[in-house]
């Protein structure tokens, strides 16, 4: 029997984008305010999962054709690389640097090496959460 998930699909299309944009806000809010890579990543994973649940896994696979295990590896590499970067200049591993720049429209913003580190964490969290859930979900036998 073919069921019609019209309500679910319509709402998902809107809600998942709200969640996604909020997750990106959380990701950038980190460091000086509540937020950060882990929370942002979990929320992104939640948004993507909502897509997987309401549409079919196969369909979303076509839309998001990434191999999550490689994303985990890249995320970890970015995070480690941020730490190694400080060793190049003779500081201990994982030393943070920050600098403030003035950008038109946005005004003064701070750039920190914690940001790429958080990006790495973000990628890892998204990929791990999706990978572990999809591994169980795909297994129909």
């Amino acid at each position: 029997m073919k069921t019609n998930y019209l309500m679910l699909h319509t709402i998902t299309r809107i809600v998942s984008f709200i969640i996604l944009s909020f997750s990106i806000f959380l990701f950038f809010a980190g460091h000086n305010n509540p937020g950060g890579g882990f929370i942002g990543g979990l929320m992104t994973a939640a948004a993507l999962l909502l897509l997987y649940v309401s549409f079919d896994i196969k369909k979303i696979k076509k839309v998001i054709p990434f191999d999550y295990s490689t994303i985990i590896a890249w995320g970890l590499l970015i995070a480690i690389g941020t730490g190694l970067y400080s060793m190049l200049f003779g500081y201990p591993y994982l030393t943070q640097f920050f600098e403030y720049y003035t950008v038109p429209i946005f005004g003064e913003i701070g750039l920190k090496t914690a940001l790429p580190f958080d990006l790495g964490i973000y990628l890892v969290v998204v990929a791990v959460a999706l990978l572990s859930i999809l591994t169980i979900a795909e297994d129909d036998t």
Binding site: F38, S132, D139
Partner: peptide
Amino acid sequence: IVIGFGVTAFLLVLSY
């Protein structure tokens, strides 16, 4: 909590 998250994910897959 993060570690617990990873461990729980693994444990769920394992028990399944």
